[in-house]
Nucleic acid binder design. Structure first.
Length: 809
RNA sequence: GCCGGUGUGGUGGAAUGGUAGACACAGGAGAUUUAAAAUCUCCCGGUAGCAAUACUGUACCGGUUCGAGUCCGGUCACCGGCACCA
């Protein structure tokens, strides 16, 4: 009989659709629970990409094994449906984004079902449905109530092409992460979330979760946590100028100061600044520059000296000049720095260009040639008054204490993390449930009025001045104040696409609840997510954001755990045939559908797991898929070879037990490639030794997480389904007996002085005397030991014997 | 520059400090076939040799060890992330 994968896969998918073997049960205390999560896809118009099945299949394999091990498994799926590409598609084709989304979700659903994943489809969520975003809005209202959201006019990242504000995390090398257009700064009034309040906990609590190390490191680096000091400088304008520095030990070397062009003092000092025109021109020019121009292209330092205001170095009372320059960032620290040109590359470069004084305060370099920046903190202080003779390591606390005693400064931790810009001037997102009343200011909508539905508009295009398309809907915008009943206007910006995905794992626990985002019982039962796999690209975006929301929800008593995800792993990318990134423009995109049509879903699943180390990127090869198909054919053909015997055959006992052990531990360790290799080895042995029906039964159980359709068909054909009254996937995961994994004989290596000379076949667990005797009997060993004395033998049980020889005296 | 990671056959990749290259892809030889596909069996790091075999071999240099792809020190290359973050 031929392996007709198309018919078999359809048959079993229909069966699962009907019988729902993947349904998770809330509150089942008779079994341990396991919540496995994969990042839900954005339903793009292109459909499933070959990158999707890698993490999906891996978690499907893991959860299938967990079910067989007796766990109550929650393995859900949904769609992260709000987002710009859908909106852009709608603009271009004049179709409502909701319709585009619906069609795309239908297409994704069909494609995912073709892969035979064990999702609990009854829990499917769509972040763009009002039933869902009602609760996204509800969380936002809680953030507002707890002073975690605020509206602020500030300089924000503005994508010139998408015409939308971007969060810091969405700007990559000065360009828009999504479209690649340059990002400039714009003053805009924005909703902001105080993620910085959670910075310390977002760092500290990483110690309590089981994330792969590179994810932890990346999150720590992103949040940042340099410890330094804030130092106050008096100025001749009367204002105290505060700076942040990690090197307060070099304060005696601070010979000038620099303000960011956006620093508030620049405007404040307008009347005192004698070269105001020059200063103003520089400020305006900086504002027009994109981030990209400011950093990448702008190697040469620029700036203007502020005439008319001087600062005073608090340690020596010296008057020092003040500059403005865009190498100082307004968004970090206090937006101003003390410049120590002798010991900072940037300051040195600037000082050379503008003729500032360079004073050496740490011995060891030639500060006229280049800045002396220390790699360690053992340098000795000079020209530094009371610090002279101390090492840098000693000078830092000494100076901190001195500053604190004089009231001139204090220790300070400055996170790199910034508050989260939460407004988007876009249509296809969750409306922000706030109204602006002339009398009462910004007022949240009452919770009973949620969801605030996204109204239908004529045109989705954002305006050039940065207003959301919703701003044109005057009927919708004009409303009454929930507080005083007077006229008020709705917020017309929407939430970023990171909003819905920040809490979706909670909704899966209780997806149809209309009283709460999920019931307390459901959250108590399923929390936390036991294993979450997703892309590295989300480490400082989605993963960080959702941890933040979760911690907030924990603080207000909504969720039962401090952290949302107990374990986080990450998959490598699937690259095109030449090792290049897959992209439409390169024309090297592989669609799973094509592979499924040609070889079947089971081959697709098996191959994407076999292809290489799960954590590393790997090139896709259409040729190599054949090998996986060949393996399944070989498995299928075993049905003709198997004898009637229902027990595991004696000649295959060791290989079967060894393979069970290997596959079991490899799946837990996410080493699917070697698990499959072990299965292939076992099948090769079956071909060599012959096999019993009992041997085949074990193979089917081990293979079922990888190739569920074919296995169920064979399970039925071989009569196992009838015998046990269950599908293979409902059986217990096979167990092994350690004693039976041992072969009767082993091949051992024989080394002379650590060099391989040959092998001997020995009875398992042979003693040293027997092994040495066998080794000495080898022709090559005899030759090598001729005229030598064996001074030492090293025996590694069942592995090797190493004879250490010396010339005989 | 900082942080993290990776360097193994023609290719994807295996190897708790213990026989390097498992398992596959590609390639070669044979069987089967009228023929092809499919399938089955064998070979397959390099150099020398008909062969047995010998030497050599995990980016490079050194060290520890009876024994190193694996551990330690240094160098180089590539990939990912961050970055005028004071």
């Amino acid at each position: 009989m031929k392996y007709d994968f198309a018919a078999i896969e359809k048959k079993w998918q229909d069966n699962w659709e009907r019988t729902k073997p993947y349904a998770a049960t809330n509150g089942d205390t008779t079994r341990k629970k396991f919540y496995g999560l994969i990042e839900f896809p954005y339903p793009s118009g292109q459909g499933l990409h070959v990158g999707h099945p890698r993490p999906f299949t891996a978690m499907d394999v893991i959860t299938r094994k967990k079910r067989m091990e007796g766990y109550n498994v929650l393995f859900p799926i949904g769609f992260d449906a709000f987002g710009l590409p859908t909106e852009n598609y709608a603009i271009k084709n004049h179709i409502h984004p909701a319709i585009v989304t619906k069609n795309n979700i239908a297409n994704f659903t069909k494609q995912l079902k073709m892969l035979g994943y064990g999702f609990d489809w009854d829990r499917c969520v769509d972040t763009s449905s009002p039933e869902y975003y009602k609760w996204t809005q509800w969380i936002f209202l809680q953030l507002v109530k707890n002073d975690m959201a605020y509206k602020d006019t500030m300089s924000v990242n503005w994508c010139t092409s998408c015409k939308v504000v971007l969060a810091n995390e969405e700007v990559v090398n000065g360009v828009c992460e999504r479209c690649g257009a340059p990002v400039i700064h714009k003053e805009k009034s924005q909703w902001m979330l105080r993620i910085t309040k959670y910075a310390q906990r977002l760092i500290d609590d990483l110690d309590d979760v089981d994330y792969i190390e590179r994810v932890k490191t990346q999150q720590r680096n992103w949040s940042g946590r340099p410890t330094g000091a804030e130092v106050i400088f008096k100025t001749t304008a009367g204002d105290d100028l505060t700076v942040f520095t990690t090197r307060c030990d070099t304060l005696f070397g601070a010979t000038y100061m620099v303000l960011a062009p956006e620093h508030a003092f620049v405007e404040k000092w307008k009347d005192r600044i004698t070269n105001w025109d020059e200063v103003k021109a520089y400020v305006d020019a900086s504002a027009r520059k994109s981030d990209f121009e400011r950093s990448e292209l702008n190697k040469e330092k620029t700036g203007v000296k502020i005439q008319g205001v001087m600062a005073v170095n608090p340690v020596n009372g010296k008057e020092i000049p003040v500059f403005i320059s865009d190498y100082v960032l307004v968004t970090y620290g206090t937006g101003a720095i003390m410049a120590v040109p002798a010991h900072d590359d940037r300051d040195w470069e600037f000082a050379k260009k503008f003729g500032c004084e360079i004073v050496e305060v740490v011995k060891g370099g030639d500060v006229e040639k280049e800045a002396f920046t220390l790699k360690d903190d053992t340098g000795v202080m000079v020209n530094s008054g009371f610090l002279n003779g101390l090492t840098v390591k000693e000078a830092i606390p000494t100076m901190k204490k001195w500053l604190a005693d004089k009231g001139l400064g204090q220790e300070k931790v400055n996170y790199k993390l910034r508050d989260w810009v939460f407004s988007r001037q876009r249509y296809w997102g969750e409306p922000i449930p706030m109204v602006n009343c002339e009398k009462c200011g910004w007022v949240p909508l009452p919770e009973e009025e949620l969801p605030l539905l996204l109204p239908k508009v004529e045109s989705y295009e954002p305006t050039d001045d940065g207003e959301s398309p919703l701003a044109k809907m005057t009927d919708w915008v004009n409303t009454t104040c929930p507080c005083c009943g007077g006229p008020a206007k709705r917020e017309t910006d929407t939430m970023p696409n990171w909003a819905g995905s920040s809490w979706y794992y909670l909704r899966y626990m209780d997806p149809h609840n209309d009283k709460a985002l999920a019931s307390k019982e459901a959250m108590d039962y399923w929390s936390p997510v036991d294993w979450y796999n997703g892309g590295m690209e989300h480490t400082t975006l989605h993963l960080l954001y959702s941890r933040f929301w979760h911690k907030f929800l924990y603080d207000i008593g909504v969720v039962p755990t401090k952290e949302p995800y107990q374990k986080r792993t990450s998959h490598g990318m699937i690259l095109g045939e030449g090792g290049e990134k897959m992209s439409k423009s390169r024309g090297n995109v592989v669609h799973p559908n094509d592979i499924i049509n040609q070889y079947g879903a089971d081959t697709m699943r098996l191959h994407i797991m076999f292809i290489g180390d799960f954590e590393k990127s790997v090139s896709w090869s259409n040729e190599a898929v054949k090998g996986s198909k060949r393996f399944l054919d070989r498995c299928w053909n075993l049905m003709d070879m198997a004898t009637k015997e229902t027990a595991i055959s004696p000649e295959n006992e060791a290989i079967v037990h060894k393979t069970i052990r290997k596959v079991t531990s490899d799946i837990d360790d996410l080493k699917m490639n070697t698990a499959i290799a072990a299965l292939m080895t076992m099948v090769n042995e079956f071909y060599a030794n012959g096999l019993s029906r009992g041997d085949l039964e074990q193979l089917l159980l081990l293979l079922s997480p990888f190739a569920p359709h074919m296995v169920e068909e064979m399970w039925e054909l071989e009569g196992f389904a009838k015998k046990y009254g269950k599908m293979a996937m409902q059986m217990n995961w096979p167990s092994y007996d350690e004693a039976k994994t041992v072969d009767a004989h082993v091949e051992m290596a024989v080394q002379i002085n650590g060099k391989l000379k040959g092998t001997v076949t020995m009875k398992t667990d042979s003693g040293e005397a027997a092994v040495v005797a066998a080794a000495m009997a080898l022709e090559k060993v005899k030759k090598a030991t001729e005229g030598m004395t064996v001074v030492k033998t090293i025996l590694v049980k069942n592995k090797l014997v190493n004879l250490i020889v010396k010339p005989a005296k």
